[in-house]
Amino acid sequence: MTTKTIESILENTLNGADLSAQEGVMLLNQTDPSIKSAIKHTADQLRHLQAGDTVTYVINRNINYTNICEQHCSFCAFRRDANAEGSYWLDWEQILAKATDAVERNATEICMQGGLNPTAKINGLSLNYYLRLVATIKGKYPQLHLHAFSPQEIQFIAKEDNLSYAYVITALKDAGVDSMPGTAAEILNDDVRRILCPEKTNTATWLEIVSTAHRLGVPTTSTMLSGHIETPTQQIEHLEKLRSLQKTALEKAYPSAISEFILLPFVGQEAPKPLRKRVGRDQPVLDDALLLTAVARIMLGNWIPNHQPSWVKLGLTGAIEALNGGCNDIGGTLMEEHITTMAGALGGTCMEVETLIAAISSLKNRPYQQRDTLYRPILSDKIPDSSTQQNDPLSTNPR
């Protein structure tokens, strides 16, 4: 592979071409520091063209309502059995108190996800429990955007209650769910999933649920858990599936689509020992994460213009580096974060707005802007009313 070939690939992408899977693997396999630097520079140029120079952030709060989970993913340090030490299940008052705290701290979004708790039912139905979760928050704070319940949780509810995915998504949307986290994707390759998360949804089902959400008018994010047992070829396969999913939503004019891509580098410090031993390290390799961040921008940017690093996993310094290599958003304040922190992440659990702004301000010619969940700028202290939001998940028109 010649340097000239890499230069040609990068030049083509700057001229608007989509990166092929083969080209993507080529880029990820580069080891020469100068070539890797050129890849990151190209990603930064594409970020400028596709999303502009403004670095956005969102004021949000995580609520992980339970860590009781029936599944046993090999990377997860968060889940607990029902009566195990450290298990918890928030009651309605605790959930409402967290939502109230978020509002008092000017949050515009609640992100809510939890373990798959088979005892979480109301009148014998899991769906009723999830609807109560939504009503607890939306009943008092209808202005908050509720970004809730991964595709894995949708599958869990549907299986528990013998319902279709479309029925579950529609019921949650009607109750007040405004968008869906694109988590539980891990790596969209079933060979990897059989080792990493054998009890979780398979690739086809994850894609089906997310596409169904788009068709029904529920925007989603998209993610990748990287840097564990997967290969560069499998990383590109994952990105290619996300790109195809987004192209389907846009070309079929679904009312919603993917709003952002978030790279989630693997943190294994507290992961179960078999996987931790197999991976051979506890914290992400920043250089690997930055190269994959850049290639993800090059691969997806024509279709998914908003890209975000994880300051929880990379630390704020690493996240700022990612803003120079393809990302246009620094993420949210979170206020609390349990899933990654319990895995041993060193980035912290809460980021004050002033800290995010100061970090962004360290970058040259990169202004900052508060946004809502769907990447619309917030120009005042007033929290936007999510009930009046239109299904416009992209702030930058693709292609």
Rank of each mutant, 00 (worst) to 15 (best):
T183Y: 00
A322M: 02
S150M: 01
C197N: 08
S150W: 00
Q143C: 13
L125I: 14
G86M: 12
L334R: 00
I122F: 04
R281H: 10
I95K: 06
T170C: 07
W311G: 10
A51H: 03
S380V: 01
K138T: 11
I357Y: 14
A343N: 14
N123W: 12
L250E: 07
G217P: 10
N60T: 11
W206H: 00
D282W: 14
L264C: 10
T170F: 12
I154Y: 07
G124P: 12
L374R: 02
P284S: 06
S20G: 06
P272G: 05
L127T: 02
A148K: 09
I9M: 10
R276C: 12
H147M: 13
T340W: 05
F266C: 13
L127M: 08
G331P: 00
Y375W: 03
D44K: 02
E93Q: 07
T223I: 02
F78V: 07
C327P: 04
N397G: 11
Y165W: 13
S37P: 09
G52L: 07
N67E: 07
A82F: 15
R297A: 03
K140P: 08
E160H: 12
A271V: 08
L346Q: 15
V134N: 07
H214E: 01
E7K: 15
E240N: 09
S386A: 09
Q369E: 05
Y165V: 07
D81L: 07
D381K: 07
A253K: 15
L10H: 14
T355D: 12
I95G: 02
Q308S: 08
A204Q: 04
H338W: 09
D288R: 11
D288W: 13
E352C: 11
L286P: 11
H307C: 08
H72F: 08
S87F: 01
